[in-house]
Design a protein around this nucleic acid. Structure first.
Lengths: 134, 134
DNA sequence: AAAACCAGTTACTTTGAAGTGCCTACTTTT
DNA sequence: AAAAGTAGGCACTTCAAAGTAACTGGTTTT
């Protein structure tokens, strides 16, 4: 077993539960597809592990309810770890596991593509504008 | 202009419309996130360009309504092209553009990861079972 | 004394996406 | 004569996901 995260303090659900279609890609997409999910991963990747409240403040508009849901799902999938110190007040830190880092690496390729397309489309819009306005 | 697809026969909407957050990744994810979308792309990638009816038959459970929606979105994003021959009966063929092929290449990395994780998790389940049953 | 912080949970409401069924207009097949 | 195929369009319903608000309990701050 690879120790890239502290031992979980709650029983984790089955990992990447198989989708109706049985396709592993489908399972993964169902997971990262959820609203806010990619943003959460992005913040944890670029700003490092952080506590619940910090994470919530870093993502304006995200409610505690949805944040909790997402964190649970990602923890179940072993993409995030959860480190809970039962002090008063309690202290809970979330961070990317090795899997999480690997996932972000693969998603970075998608990000590069998305950015390049956006730039290309912006140029095309300018060309359209110039063509229209002589 | 790169000619990897026939001229569109209907006005296309703005390409990858900017998301509320303005993040290009968010725009791309909103697009490929929709149910069935990845499956449609996968079928067009592995089986080549095909007509509406064929595509629908190749994806059991997918309704014409949703298929049409997806195809329109993907066409707007220049990921698919649409070739319409106004014969009787009409003949409409869909296929991946260069962008579509590029996207599928990047998504293949995600697919490999998803598959490997699923295999790893299956092994872990077996290990759990053996540990429990001695 | 009251408010804020911590990490959530619970109940209720809203809304947007997906599903379902029926329609087109013309041709070919049975 | 009737059914099926072609590529969808349109209206209606349903349901799960997201949003909203209130609450926890002990501690620190104002």
């Amino acid at each position: 077993m690879v120790h890239d995260a502290p031992m979980p303090q709650r029983p984790l659900k089955p990992i990447l539960p198989p989708s109706p279609s049985g396709c592993p890609m489908d399972s993964l997409l169902r997971l990262i597809m959820g609203q806010w999910t990619c943003y959460i991963l992005w913040v944890l990747c670029s700003q490092g592990p952080q506590r619940f409240g910090t994470l919530k403040r870093n993502i304006p508009g995200l409610s505690a309810k949805v944040l909790t849901e997402r964190l649970r799902l990602l923890e179940d999938a072993r993409i995030l770890y959860r480190e809970h110190v039962p002090s008063i007040p309690p202290q809970v830190t979330y961070g990317l596991t090795d899997r999480g880092k690997e996932l972000l690496t693969a998603m970075d390729e998608l990000f590069k593509i998305a950015k390049r397309w956006q730039d290309e489309d912006a140029e095309e819009s300018v060309a359209d504008y110039d063509r229209y306005n002589g």
